[in-house]
Simulated scan of single mutants.
Amino acid sequence: MSTQLLAGKRGVIFGALDNQSIAWQVAEVCAEMGATFTLTNAPVALRFGSLNELAERLNAEVIPADATSIEDLENLFTRSEEVLGGKIDFVLHAIGMSLNVRKGKEYTDLKHDWMLKTFDISAVSFHKMCQVLYKGDHMADWGSILGLTYIAAQRTFPDYSEMAESKALLESFARSFGYHFGEKNHVRVNTISQSPTMTTAGKGVKGFTEFFDYADNMSPLGNASARACGEYCATLFSDLTRYVTMQNLFHDGGFSSMGMNPKALK
């Protein structure tokens, strides 16, 4: 896209791993639209992904941070302000991981210490992130904070396991912090409920390929791609959506409003 919708905006993007990541696509779109930003992921993820390649291409600095660590987050946002030359206009939280899902544990036989780790990484990290931004006064007036979520927060998808509860918690944190940030300096906080997307993490869920096809058939517009999600995020980072806050916004081709599509029965 040639539009400079985000010209002059400064941001921080969490969670890009490789070119299949939604966060990776968000970064590419934001760069095309004139934004400058830092990129971050956990140190262990940086060893397995290709984030440095993206950073070099987009002229963005990578600042490693464990999103469950307050100290790491404080360093991330302080350093980002130094690198970018001012307060932060937008932040994307695109983080989620479940050891129970990775290990194929059934929902009725989850390891609860792993579940707590899932909650910390996938949801509590969002609260920690917002708290550090809030207390450190890192966000510019009328800024925008986004978290990526999924419809399993509202409906039952058995193989999504305790990630469903993580997303429900994430959405609740966004609503609660949306109030506090709005009162403080007009910063809005929202979540985007994205279609099933062929990311490295998504493909780790049992039966994902079959469900991807089902959702594509159920949705009148089909599944939204990672690139399309990046474009939607850009609109929510822009000044055109300054009064949208505390919302869970479905970006799923209409899947969330469908009861049944005859195509899905064929």
Rank of each mutant, 00 (worst) to 15 (best):
L76F: 07
Q4I: 03
M218R: 10
F126L: 04
V29C: 02
F250Q: 04
F173I: 13
K9T: 05
L58H: 06
P43F: 05
A35I: 00
Y160F: 14
K128L: 08
A215Q: 13
R242A: 14
Q4W: 04
E82K: 12
A201S: 10
K117Q: 07
E171F: 01
L46T: 10
W142C: 09
M258Q: 13
G202Q: 11
A23I: 12
I22G: 00
I192M: 10
L6A: 08
A65D: 14
G182W: 07
W24D: 01
C229W: 03
N217G: 14
G259V: 14
C30K: 00
T149C: 05
S144H: 07
V44H: 13
R79H: 12
Y243V: 13
T118G: 10
R155N: 11
G34E: 09
G254K: 12
R57F: 03
K206A: 15
V29E: 03
T36D: 10
M1N: 12
N100R: 04
N41L: 13
S144P: 02
T199H: 04
G86T: 14
A201H: 04
S195F: 01
V83G: 05
K103Q: 15
K206P: 14
R10P: 08
T38G: 09
A153P: 00
K105D: 11
M115R: 11
S50L: 04
Y214N: 10
K203S: 13
M129R: 01
K206I: 08
G34C: 07
V62Q: 03
E231A: 10
